[in-house]
Simulated assay, not measured.
Amino acid sequence: MTQPPPALSVALLEDDEALRERVLAPELKTYGFDVRTAGRPAELDAILASAAVDVVVLDVGLPDEDGFSIVRRLRSTPSLGLVLLTARDENTDRVRGLEDGADAYLAKPVAIPVLAATIRSVARRLASGPSTSTASVGADWTFHDGGWVLRSPDGTSVALTAHERCVLQLLHERRGFAVERDALIAALSDGSGDFDPHRLEMTIHRLRTKVSRANAGTLPVRAVRARGYVMLPPDAPATGRR
């Protein structure tokens, strides 16, 4: 007989013992997950050191270390899925969580079916690699969530603004070829004649800074003197003017 696939292993870090042990853990087990629980970051570290874990679900507000910091240090393991839970459903926290490397961000109180579906979705994406519906960017950089999230080769996610998304998608369409400044400005201005040309340089600068602060590596976009910008193809050497 064919053996069923092993249950997905989930590490749950939540300092509220009642919520963790009486609600989240038992409910997730009913969905077929192998759940290990922790009340503090050190306990999570012990779980990760002793067992193979597919997805970590963790609260943002913790007594010893906030969830954002934990996500940043765990992001170096690209095969590990990271789902953030928080009582604060604010866009700034959502963007921060995604930029720090979380694969998903859910607001409390979270519906268990939604949490279970999110865990499976994250695990499925990690197991299958880059989705065929995503667009390739640079050296294995990818667009996700309709182009609103940029993911680096090591799996770090960077949320994009509308202008950043517009610039990167245009550069990707002509990857390996210089895109004129006028073409980029026209795309950013949407036909408006009062667009400040310096905003293009500001957009590129913010993109590089955002990617760098997320520890996502070096964005493969270079300035081309007197012309515009180019996104380097995957096999291009990482040299040239930034």
Rank of each mutant, 00 (worst) to 15 (best):
R96C: 00
E201C: 01
S131F: 05
W141Q: 09
K108S: 01
G39T: 07
V110G: 07
E14C: 00
H172D: 11
V224M: 11
L171C: 09
A7Q: 03
L62V: 03
A51M: 08
F177C: 09
L115T: 08
G97L: 03
A135G: 06
A104M: 03
A183Q: 14
T142Y: 15
P6C: 12
Y105F: 14
C166Y: 10
Q169R: 15
L126K: 10
A186S: 14
G67R: 00
I70Y: 04
P113L: 13
L44W: 04
E43N: 04
L126E: 10
E90F: 04
D235E: 15
V158S: 01
H198F: 03
P26R: 12
A236S: 13
V60R: 02
R242L: 15
M1L: 12
D194I: 10
R125P: 05
G147F: 04
A216G: 06
L82F: 05
V35Y: 01
T161W: 06
D54T: 00
N91A: 07
A186P: 10
D235G: 11
T2C: 05
A104H: 08
L58M: 05
A139G: 02
G155H: 06
V167E: 15
K108G: 01
A38I: 01
L24M: 11
P109R: 15
R125G: 07
D89K: 07
G129K: 04
N91H: 11
A116R: 13
A183R: 13
G32L: 07
E65Q: 04
G228T: 11
R22P: 06
V114M: 14
G39D: 05
V224A: 10
A186H: 14
T239E: 12
D140Y: 11
W148A: 11
I119V: 07
V35D: 01
R241M: 12
R174T: 07
T2G: 03
E164Q: 11
P153E: 02
G155C: 08
A104Q: 10
T142A: 09
D54I: 00
A236H: 14
A11N: 02
T156F: 02
V211G: 11
V23E: 13
D196S: 12
G97W: 01
H144G: 15
A87C: 06
T209C: 05
D45I: 02
D16L: 02
G81E: 00
K210G: 02
V110L: 12
R181L: 06
A226S: 15
R72S: 02
R174Y: 12
M231S: 11
R206Y: 08
V149I: 11
V10I: 09
L98E: 04
R36N: 05
L74S: 09
P197Q: 06
I185P: 10
V71N: 00
L126W: 05
D54H: 00
I47Q: 02
L232M: 12
E17Y: 11
E180Y: 15
G129E: 07
R88T: 06
R124H: 06
S157L: 01
A116C: 11
P109Q: 15
E21Y: 06
L58H: 00
T30K: 15
D93M: 05
R88I: 09
L232R: 10
E14W: 01
L170K: 14
E90W: 02
F68I: 03
V10T: 07
D93Q: 07
S69W: 04
A116K: 13
D235P: 09
A107F: 04
Y105K: 08
G81L: 01
A116Q: 11
L232G: 08
V83F: 03
F195G: 12
